[in-house]
Amino acid sequence: MQLYRIVVGVILSICLSQSALAKWEEERDFTVNGKDELVYYFKTNEQGQKLVLDKYIKRLIFIRPDRLYKRTIRLIKIDDQPIEVMSDPFSRYPEQTAITFENKDEVLKKLFLAKKVEVFVRYNRDEAISTFQIK
């Protein structure tokens, strides 16, 4: 009877822990010299936009393939908690925008555990919200 309770407890905890963890998709890449393998985590939403979690430089990369490359990102929400950020477009890849934040380690931890990330994007005077559901 005691063994039965332990087995049921272990199975229950495994099932609950898997649903509690946020699931980012993985993308593997090799460095230029081909020696080191880098793992990046990303999520794509319904509009084809991509949010890449770069744990090496501790930033997010927002990718939106469109014709309006001049974009600014000043705010993201992680599970409805607002976080002020800074953005910097890539010169070689205009569809990509780097998102950096002050308290990098704390924000990265929140991003790994997040269920929903909202990115507030500004195109000149127009604003848009990109939502990423992470399951």
Rank of each mutant, 00 (worst) to 15 (best):
M1I: 00
I6Q: 11
V10M: 14
I11K: 02
S13Y: 11
I14A: 14
C15W: 05
L16S: 15
L16A: 14
Q18G: 11
S19R: 08
S19W: 08
S19T: 07
A22D: 09
K23A: 07
E27S: 06
E27K: 05
R28M: 11
R28Y: 11
F30Y: 11
G34E: 08
E37Q: 04
V39P: 00
Y41P: 00
F42G: 03
K43V: 14
T44R: 13
N45L: 03
N45R: 01
E46P: 00
Q47M: 03
Q47W: 00
Q49P: 02
L51K: 03
L51Y: 01
L51W: 01
L53W: 02
L53E: 03
D54R: 00
D54C: 02
Y56G: 01
I57S: 09
K58I: 01
K58P: 00
K58H: 08
K58D: 08
K58N: 10
L60Q: 06
F62N: 03
I63M: 04
I63T: 05
R64D: 08
R64S: 15
P65V: 07
R67A: 13
L68R: 13
Y69W: 10
K70H: 10
R71L: 04
R71H: 05
T72I: 10
I73Y: 04
K77A: 15
I78N: 08
D80Y: 12
Q81A: 15
P82G: 07
V85A: 14
V85E: 11
M86W: 04
S87M: 06
D88L: 03
P94Q: 06
P94R: 07
E95R: 01
Q96M: 14
Q96C: 06
Q96D: 05
Q96E: 08
A98C: 03
A98Y: 02
I99L: 05
F101D: 07
E102R: 15
N103G: 05
K104G: 00
E106T: 12
V107R: 07
L108V: 03
L108H: 07
K109A: 09
K110S: 12
K110L: 15
K110T: 02
K115N: 14
K115F: 05
K115P: 06
N124S: 12
S130K: 00
T131Y: 01
F132P: 08
I134S: 03
K135H: 07
